[in-house]
Amino acid sequence: MNNATLQSRDQIAASYLQQMQALAFEISVAMDAIAANALPKFQESVARQEMLCAGLASMANTVSNGFRALDHPLPSSADAEIQRKIRAASGAIRELNLQYAALLKHSGKSIALLALLCRSHQGQFQEARGSRLKHQTWSCEM
Protein backbone atom coordinates (compact mmCIF):
# COMPACT_ATOMS: atom_id res chain seq x y z
CA MET A 1 0.00 0.00 0.00
CA ASN A 2 1.51 3.30 -1.02
CA ASN A 3 1.51 6.57 0.90
CA ALA A 4 -1.21 8.11 -1.29
CA THR A 5 -3.57 5.25 -0.55
CA LEU A 6 -2.81 5.49 3.14
CA GLN A 7 -3.43 9.24 3.12
CA SER A 8 -6.71 8.85 1.30
CA ARG A 9 -7.79 6.10 3.68
CA ASP A 10 -6.87 8.27 6.65
CA GLN A 11 -8.85 11.15 5.25
CA ILE A 12 -11.93 8.96 4.82
CA ALA A 13 -11.47 7.60 8.34
CA ALA A 14 -11.19 11.15 9.73
CA SER A 15 -14.29 12.18 7.82
CA TYR A 16 -16.08 9.10 9.08
CA LEU A 17 -15.18 10.02 12.65
CA GLN A 18 -16.36 13.57 12.12
CA GLN A 19 -19.73 12.37 10.83
CA MET A 20 -20.08 10.00 13.76
CA GLN A 21 -19.52 12.92 16.11
CA ALA A 22 -22.08 14.95 14.18
CA LEU A 23 -24.58 12.08 14.41
CA ALA A 24 -24.04 11.76 18.15
CA PHE A 25 -24.63 15.47 18.52
CA GLU A 26 -27.83 15.25 16.45
CA ILE A 27 -29.12 12.41 18.60
CA SER A 28 -28.65 14.52 21.71
CA VAL A 29 -30.35 17.45 19.95
CA ALA A 30 -33.30 15.20 19.07
CA MET A 31 -33.60 13.93 22.65
CA ASP A 32 -33.60 17.47 23.96
CA ALA A 33 -36.22 18.43 21.36
CA ILE A 34 -38.46 15.57 22.46
CA ALA A 35 -38.15 16.59 26.07
CA ALA A 36 -38.75 20.25 25.25
CA ASN A 37 -41.77 19.36 23.12
CA ALA A 38 -40.10 21.26 20.28
CA LEU A 39 -41.56 19.44 17.31
CA PRO A 40 -39.98 21.47 14.46
CA LYS A 41 -36.55 21.15 16.08
CA PHE A 42 -37.06 17.41 16.46
CA GLN A 43 -38.15 17.00 12.84
CA GLU A 44 -35.14 18.96 11.57
CA SER A 45 -32.81 16.89 13.69
CA VAL A 46 -34.27 13.60 12.43
CA ALA A 47 -33.81 14.79 8.85
CA ARG A 48 -30.16 15.59 9.55
CA GLN A 49 -29.72 12.21 11.27
CA GLU A 50 -31.05 10.47 8.15
CA MET A 51 -28.55 12.34 5.96
CA LEU A 52 -25.66 11.56 8.30
CA CYS A 53 -26.64 7.89 8.49
CA ALA A 54 -26.75 7.66 4.68
CA GLY A 55 -23.29 9.25 4.45
CA LEU A 56 -21.87 6.99 7.15
CA ALA A 57 -23.32 3.86 5.52
CA SER A 58 -21.64 4.64 2.21
CA MET A 59 -18.30 5.35 3.91
CA ALA A 60 -18.41 2.44 6.34
CA ASN A 61 -17.46 -0.27 3.87
CA THR A 62 -14.68 1.84 2.34
CA VAL A 63 -13.12 2.50 5.73
CA SER A 64 -13.61 -1.08 6.87
CA ASN A 65 -12.03 -2.49 3.72
CA GLY A 66 -9.17 -0.02 4.12
CA PHE A 67 -8.41 -1.26 7.63
CA ARG A 68 -8.72 -4.89 6.55
CA ALA A 69 -6.13 -4.27 3.81
CA LEU A 70 -3.59 -3.38 6.48
CA ASP A 71 -1.34 -6.37 7.16
CA HIS A 72 2.24 -6.36 8.13
CA PRO A 73 3.70 -4.01 9.29
CA LEU A 74 1.29 -2.89 12.04
CA PRO A 75 -0.59 0.33 11.39
CA SER A 76 1.13 3.59 12.14
CA SER A 77 0.54 5.43 15.44
CA ALA A 78 -1.71 7.83 13.51
CA ASP A 79 -3.80 4.88 12.29
CA ALA A 80 -3.96 3.47 15.80
CA GLU A 81 -5.07 6.81 17.18
CA ILE A 82 -7.83 7.27 14.63
CA GLN A 83 -9.01 3.69 15.13
CA ARG A 84 -9.13 4.28 18.88
CA LYS A 85 -11.18 7.40 18.35
CA ILE A 86 -13.56 5.63 15.95
CA ARG A 87 -14.06 2.79 18.42
CA ALA A 88 -14.66 5.25 21.28
CA ALA A 89 -17.06 7.29 19.19
CA SER A 90 -18.82 4.13 18.11
CA GLY A 91 -19.20 3.05 21.74
CA ALA A 92 -20.56 6.46 22.71
CA ILE A 93 -23.02 6.42 19.83
CA ARG A 94 -24.08 2.89 20.76
CA GLU A 95 -24.89 4.02 24.29
CA LEU A 96 -26.59 7.17 23.07
CA ASN A 97 -28.58 5.19 20.52
CA LEU A 98 -29.85 2.89 23.24
CA GLN A 99 -31.03 5.88 25.27
CA TYR A 100 -32.55 7.41 22.15
CA ALA A 101 -34.40 4.16 21.39
CA ALA A 102 -35.67 3.97 24.98
CA LEU A 103 -36.85 7.58 24.89
CA LEU A 104 -38.62 7.06 21.56
CA LYS A 105 -40.26 3.90 22.85
CA HIS A 106 -41.43 5.44 26.12
CA SER A 107 -42.52 8.77 24.72
CA GLY A 108 -43.93 7.23 21.54
CA LYS A 109 -46.21 4.94 23.53
CA SER A 110 -47.52 7.84 25.58
CA ILE A 111 -48.08 9.91 22.47
CA ALA A 112 -49.90 7.03 20.79
CA LEU A 113 -52.21 6.79 23.80
CA LEU A 114 -52.85 10.53 23.86
CA ALA A 115 -53.45 10.57 20.10
CA LEU A 116 -56.00 7.81 20.61
CA LEU A 117 -57.64 9.82 23.38
CA CYS A 118 -57.76 12.88 21.18
CA ARG A 119 -59.30 10.96 18.30
CA SER A 120 -61.97 9.54 20.56
CA HIS A 121 -62.77 12.93 22.08
CA GLN A 122 -66.06 14.25 20.89
CA GLY A 123 -68.96 15.01 23.20
CA GLN A 124 -67.87 12.47 25.72
CA PHE A 125 -67.35 14.77 28.65
CA GLN A 126 -69.61 13.96 31.54
CA GLU A 127 -70.26 15.95 34.65
CA ALA A 128 -69.56 14.04 37.82
CA ARG A 129 -72.55 13.08 39.90
CA GLY A 130 -73.31 14.79 43.18
CA SER A 131 -74.05 18.38 44.00
CA ARG A 132 -70.55 19.27 45.15
CA LEU A 133 -68.54 17.50 42.48
CA LYS A 134 -68.59 19.63 39.39
CA HIS A 135 -65.45 18.45 37.64
CA GLN A 136 -65.88 16.59 34.38
CA THR A 137 -64.64 13.18 33.46
CA TRP A 138 -63.65 12.00 30.03
CA SER A 139 -63.73 8.36 29.12
CA CYS A 140 -63.01 6.43 25.97
CA GLU A 141 -62.27 2.86 24.91
CA MET A 142 -58.73 1.81 24.04
Binding site: L39, C53, A60, S64, Y100
Partner: peptide, 27 residues
Protein backbone atom coordinates in the same frame (compact mmCIF):
# COMPACT_ATOMS: atom_id res chain seq x y z
CA UNK B 1 -47.01 14.88 13.65
CA UNK B 2 -45.03 13.64 16.63
CA UNK B 3 -45.90 10.06 15.76
CA UNK B 4 -44.65 10.53 12.20
CA UNK B 5 -41.40 12.07 13.42
CA UNK B 6 -40.97 9.21 15.89
CA UNK B 7 -41.35 6.64 13.12
CA UNK B 8 -38.59 8.38 11.13
CA UNK B 9 -36.41 8.50 14.25
CA UNK B 10 -36.97 4.78 14.87
CA UNK B 11 -35.62 4.05 11.38
CA UNK B 12 -32.51 6.10 12.22
CA UNK B 13 -32.03 4.03 15.38
CA UNK B 14 -32.06 0.81 13.31
CA UNK B 15 -29.59 2.26 10.81
CA UNK B 16 -27.22 3.30 13.60
CA UNK B 17 -27.38 -0.22 15.04
CA UNK B 18 -26.30 -1.71 11.73
CA UNK B 19 -23.59 0.95 11.36
CA UNK B 20 -22.32 0.06 14.79
CA UNK B 21 -21.73 -3.58 13.74
CA UNK B 22 -19.72 -2.50 10.71
CA UNK B 23 -17.67 -0.01 12.69
CA UNK B 24 -16.83 -2.46 15.45
CA UNK B 25 -15.85 -5.04 12.83
CA UNK B 26 -13.40 -2.60 11.21
CA UNK B 27 -11.70 -2.01 14.55
Amino acid sequence: TYQQAYEAAARVVSTIQSLFSVTMAMG
